[in-house]
C-alpha cells in the first residue's frame, strides 16, 4: 500500500547526506525527476530507459567503485520488473550499495495504473529479504526518514529500503537526456577526464 510520504521532499532530504564519494543513479520516470529536482551534480546518472535495470546498473557501478557509496533510486514498477537482481546481488554482495525504492503503488508515467504493491499483496522489502539481501526495511512515515538516511549512506550493503510514498501528479523536472553526455559526465567526475576518455 502506498503511504503518506512526499517523494520530492523525501529525495531532497536524502541528498543532504551526500558528498563527493556518493554516486546516485535514478531509474526511469519519476525517480529521475525527483533526483534532478533535488540537485543536479555530475555524480548523478539518470537512467531514462532500460526499465527493470536500475538496481543492476547501480550494482555494476558499486562493483567497479568499491570506495564510493552507490545509491540507486528507483520505483516499485521498475523494481518489480527486475526482482531477480535481489538474488544476484545477495549472492555476490557488495557493501557499498543501497537501493531505495520509492513505492507509490503505481505506474506513474503511463497513467497511474496500479502495480502489484498497490494493495499490499506484494511486499518488495520482503522479497529482497527472502532473496538474501543483508538489510531490508520499509519506511512509511516522516519520523523514519533519519533511519532511511542511515540505511542509504551508512549501513553496510547491500541494503534495500522501500519508502512508501503518496501517488502524486507532480511536474516533470527533466534532466539532460543525452546518454553519451550523461555517461561521459559521470565517468569524468569519478575517474578524471584522462582515465575516462581512454
Amino acid at each position: 500500500m502506498s503511504g503518506g510520504l512526499h517523494r520530492r521532499d523525501l529525495v531532497k532530504e536524502l541528498v543532504k547526506g551526500r558528498d563527493k564519494n556518493t554516486l546516485m543513479l535514478s531509474g526511469l520516470g519519476s525517480p529521475c525527476w525527483d533526483l534532478n529536482n533535488a540537485g543536479d551534480v555530475p555524480e548523478n546518472f539518470y537512467i531514462w530507459g532500460a526499465m527493470g535495470g536500475a538496481a543492476m546498473i547501480g550494482y555494476g557501478v558499486a562493483r567497479a567503485q568499491p570506495d564510493k557509496r552507490v545509491i540507486v533510486l528507483t520505483g516499485d514498477g521498475e523494481m518489480l520488473m527486475g526482482m531477480g537482481a535481489f538474488a544476484s546481488i545477495a549472492n555476490f554482495p557488495v557493501r557499498n550499495l543501497a537501493i531505495v525504492v520509492l513505492d507509490n503503488g503505481r505506474f506513474g508515467e503511463t497513467g497511474g495504473q496500479k502495480t502489484h504493491t498497490s494493495t499490499g499483496v506484494t511486499d518488495l522489502a520482503g522479497i529482497a529479504k527472502a532473496s538474501g539481501i543483508a538489510t531490508t526495511a520499509t519506511i512509511t512515515q516522516e519520523s523514519e526518514i533519519a533511519k532511511l538516511k542511515e540505511l542509504a549512506f551508512k549501513t553496510p550493503g547491500p541494503v534495500v529500503a522501500v519508502a512508501k510514498v503518496q501517488y502524486e501528479k507532480l511536474k516533470f523536472v527533466l534532466p539532460a537526456n543525452s546518454g553519451g553526455y550523461l555517461k561521459d559526465r559521470f565517468r569524468n567526475a569519478i575517474l578524471g577526464v584522462d582515465r575516462a576518455q581512454m
Partner: peptide, 15 residues
C-alpha cells in the same frame, strides 16, 4: 538482461 545492466554500470564505474 541483468548482466547487460551490470556491465553498463561496471563501465560507468571505470572497469
Amino acid at each position: 538482461e541483468e548482466g547487460i545492466h551490470m556491465l553498463s554500470g561496471v563501465y560507468l564505474g571505470g572497469a
